[in-house]
Simulated scan of single mutants.
Amino acid sequence: MTEGSKSVEKWLVGLPCSFDRHVKYKCKKGSTNSETSSCIGESFNSFPPRTSKWNIACLESLGIFYNKEFHDSPQDILSMIFEETGAFHPVSEEQNCNVTDIKKSLTFNFPISEIVDMLTDKEKVTLNNGESFFPEIEHDIDECTSVDIREFLFSCQLMLSCRAAFFYDWRENIEPKDMFVEILEKFARLCQLITVPGSACSVKKTSMTLENVSVTSKADLVMIPERYRRSTFSAKDSATCVVSVAEINNLKQRKSKVGREKAAQDVRSSIKDGEKDSSEPTQIYTKVNTDILAQHGGDLLINRQMYCSTLSSSTPTLYLPGMIVVGTEVIFTLMKIHRKHVMQLKEQRETTLRATIYYSKPKDLLRKEDRDELVEAFTELSNI
C-alpha cells in the first residue's frame, strides 16, 4: 500500500455488509400527516407518506415480518414461487445454451468482500501512469465476442477502477450508487430481462392508503421479461421483480471491521441473556440496514399491482418477488401475503394476519461462483 493510502479499517467502511442491531418498536397512531414523521423509539407520529421514510417498525405495524433465516440460494426463493404458481420454471434447453455461454465468457473472480487484499496484490492489479487495470477482466474482454457481455465487463471494470482510485487516494469519494445500478441493469440484459426505473411506473399503481395516509413508493428498478417490453406501460403490467439498491457510501449503513465485529458480538451477547431475548436474531438484519429492509418491504406491498397476473391473481396468496442490491451483492426476496391481509390494510382495519418476506444469502456479481448461480436465477425470472 502506498504512503498516505487509506487504512484497511477505513477502507472497509465501503464494503457491502453491515451489522445493525434490531430494536423492537411499538407503533402508535397519530393525527398529523407530516412527510418527516416516522416510527421512532416508542412513539409513532403519523404513517410516513413515502416508503423511503419507513423504518422496520412501520413495516411490522402492518403485520409484515422478515423471515428469521437466510435461504441458501436464489433458486430456493424461486422454487417456492414455482411450486405454488408455476411461475419461474427452470431454464429451458435453449436458455441453458445462453447461460452456459455467459458462464464461459465471464471467468474473472474479484469478490468485493476481498477487495482490500486484491488491491494490494500486484498480480491482481497493475498500476500504470496512475491508472488501474484488472488483468482477469481484461482477459475476458479480449476473449469476448458478445457486445452485451463486453458492456457488463466494462461496467464492472469502471466500478473497480473507481474503488481503486478511492483506495489509493486518487479520489475523495467511493463509487456512486449509479455504478451498481448500471452493473445490475447490464447483467439483467444478459438474462433476457429489461429494467425500468421505478420513477417511470404508474403513479396510480405505486400508491396505497395505509393508516389513513396516502403512501407512495418509488422502487429503484422494476424488472420485466424481455418479451413483454412492448406492453411494459400498458394497463396489464408484467413486472416480475421489484428492486431496491442500497447506498454504498452512506456511512450510516456501513461500519468498520471493528465496528461490525463488535455489533455482531453485541447481538450474540443479547441472545445469551435469556431475560432480554430468548430468540435468534433475524439474520438479514446483520447484512442490511433495517431502514432499507423496511423500505423494500413497503415497495413490494405497494407495487403489488405492477406484477404479472401469474403472481398477483392466481392464488389466494400473493407472491411478490424482489431484490435488495448492496453494492454488487444481490439478495433475492419474496413477500408472501394473503389477499385478506391486503384487503384489511386497504380498508384501514386492524389485522392479526402475518405476512413473511423470505430472502436468500447475498450473492456477489463479481465472484465467479456466485455469478454463475445468479445467471441461472435471473434467467428463471424471465420464465413467467
Rank of each mutant, 00 (worst) to 15 (best):
L127R: 12
L127A: 11
N129S: 14
N129Y: 06
G130V: 02
E131S: 13
E131N: 13
E131G: 07
E131M: 13
S132C: 08
S132Y: 04
F133K: 08
F134R: 00
F134C: 01
F134Q: 03
P135W: 05
E136Y: 02
I137M: 03
I137H: 00
I137V: 10
E138P: 02
H139G: 04
H139S: 14
H139F: 07
I141S: 02
D142I: 07
D142S: 12
C144H: 02
T145E: 15
T145H: 15
V147P: 08
D148V: 14
D148N: 12
I149K: 01
E151K: 14
L153H: 02
F154H: 11
F154G: 03
S155W: 00
S155M: 06
C156I: 05
L158N: 04
L160P: 00
S161Q: 15
R163M: 10
A164H: 01
A165E: 03
A165Y: 01
F166C: 04
F166T: 10
F167H: 06
Y168A: 04
Y168E: 05
Y168S: 08
D169I: 05
R171L: 11
N173H: 14
N173D: 14
I174N: 06
E175L: 05
E175S: 15
E175A: 06
E175Y: 02
P176E: 12
P176M: 07
D178Q: 12
D178V: 02
